[in-house]
Each structure stands twice: as structure tokens, then as C-alpha cells.
Amino acid sequence: MDFIDEDFIDHNKNNKNNHKKMEVDQNEELPTKFDMEMTIKYVANHGNDKNDFEYTMTEFLRMSGIYWGTTCLDIMGHLDKLDKKSIIEFIKNCQCKKSGGIAACDSHDPHILYSLSAVQILCIYDALDEIDIPALGKYVQSLQQIDGSFFGDKWGEVDTRFSFCAVAILALTNQMNLIDVDKAVEFVMSCVNPDGGFGSKPYAESHAGLIYCCVGFLSITHNLHRLETEKLAWWLCERQLKSGGLNGRPEKLPDVCYSWWVLSSLTIMGKAHWIDGAKLKEFIISCLDTETGGFSDRPGNMPDIFHTLFGIGALSLLGYENLKKINPTFCMPEEIVSKIYQAQILEY
């Protein structure tokens, strides 16, 4: 659940050497159709292009990068484009022998974010037994604090993202009994704001990405009844702007990744029909870069694999043809998740 949106990483800074797409030509016609073949190629070949700018500096989140790529390709029905064996080998090398946690990359320190990405990839490949699952469970257990919250790693940062990662890892590996779930729920519920939304910790501003983490957390722990569903769903539908796109906080610009964070949360709460799905679909497709096949945050910007996954994930939730169904809680193919764990989803 690494957030690579403009609230958490400065896109413009990362893109400052690339002028190609910095200025949007207002007259340029935006795409209205989504050519899946091209997007498959984009994801499968990602990183082969030595001039690829976004990925020159991202070893610190490589595990998440692989998760975005595998999920994306699986949803499009082309997981075979990646080399399963080398990916599994890579993950095995990233598990820390001492702590059991998994790092973003060989020789990095373990972190709960990348531990979840690794577990998600292994589930997709039906290869969980390739790593030491009990050791990973102990690692997650060791990160829970007295107030029920979770550290992201041994350095003690607390965030509702980590609560989500913890229960997602334990659910997918069938080890939920290792933590105090009730206390974990109490911590997440202490982060509710008067607008019904959630932030990263108590009193932090409501943010759609963090709302997804908290709603997903409650979905996994079967505690959705703790939510004021209507109030929260209303706040989430307010994220839809005239363009059809969704933003993450009031008065911010729309961004394709919020199509996922908002729509998945609404889907979990059975309220996805409250927004205008047709207009959202139009917005997402307008963010397709026809030159490469990747999706960007907004029309005309540089594409990247993160926005490509979340664009495609949202299209799958909207029932787009030829895409596999995606699970709104775990952001993985439904056919994979349904064999492993039943999260709580509210009906329409």
C-alpha cells in the first residue's frame, strides 16, 4: 500500500528532467478507447527501457513494483508474460532471516509494506510455501503496539496503512490469531474524523487512500458495522468532480489512483453505484498514454506502472469487458482471493 500519489511523492520533482509530457496540449484529443494489447506490452516490458525515468531510482519500492505489474497483467489475463521463477527467487532473497520480515529489495531492511506486496505476489503465483510463513507472521506480530496500532518497521512509524498491511498479510497466510484484532480495530476506529473519513492516525485529515486502508482493514476483520457507512460513502462520492475523475481530499485535483481508493471503498460498503461510473470510466481512459499504453495520474501526464494498476483495477470494478474481476479489499484477482480468504463486503 505504498502511496505514489502527489500527496506522498512529488511527481513534478521526479519528472523534472522529462519535458515530454509536462505541458498538456489543450487541443490534443484524449483517448476514448482502451487498447489492452498495448497496455499488456507496457507492463510486461516495464523497466527494459533504460531511459525509463520513473524506474531509475525505485529499488526502495521494487517489491511493490513487481506486485503492481503481476496484478495488472493477471487482471488482463497475461500473467504468463513475466518470469515466475525469477520473481519467486527474488522474493525469497528479500526475506530477512533474523526478523522474518520482507524487504523491498535484496540488501534493504524489511518493512510491512513490502511484506504485504511479497505475500500478494506469492498468492497470485500460488507459491506461499516458498517463504517462511510462520517467521513472517511473527514479524507482523512483533510490530503491534499496546494501543493496537502497528509500526511499519522497527523504527516506530505508526500509520493506518500498516494496520491494513498487518491484517492483509495475516489473512492471506491464515495467521490472524497472532495479533490482538480487537485492539487493532479500536486503533483504526480512533482515526475516524467528524466527516466520517479516516486519516493516517488519530486527528489526521481524511484522505481517500487512507480511507481505503481503514475500510479494507474493517472488511478483512469483519467489522464493517463499526462504520457510519452512509456518512463515509457520501464523503467518498463527493470526491467525484465534473470531469468524472475522483480526488483524494476536498479541493484537490483528480488522480487516476483515487479511482481505485475511492471506488474500492465504496464497493466494499455496497455503495459504488452512488457515483457516476460511466463518467469515471471516461476519465480513466482519458489518462491512457496512447504512445506507451500506460496510464498516468491525469490526462497528458507521464504514465507509470502504479497508475496503470489502479486505473485497470478501477476499470475492473466498473465491469470493463475482458478484464478479470478484481477483489476490492485486497486489490488482487477475485479468483485468487476467493480461494484463500473471505473478506466482508456489504451488499447494495
Binding site: H46, N48, S86
Partner: peptide
């Protein structure tokens, strides 16, 4: 210096600048 193990291709192949490689080889 210790070279980076770049992991599986193709998703993760990375283009580094020389200076970046040099510094991180020594960091490792």
C-alpha cells in the same frame, strides 16, 4: 564495493547513473 543484485527482469531492470552506482556499491 558490492554490486547490486538487480532481481528479475523485466519489471525491475533499472537504469542507474554511474555516480549512483558508485555511491551505492560503497554503501552496500
Amino acid at each position: 564495493p558490492i554490486k547490486q543484485n538487480d532481481g528479475p527482469n523485466p519489471i525491475v531492470a533499472i537504469a542507474y547513473s554511474e555516480r549512483f552506482l558508485d555511491v551505492y556499491d560503497y554503501f552496500r
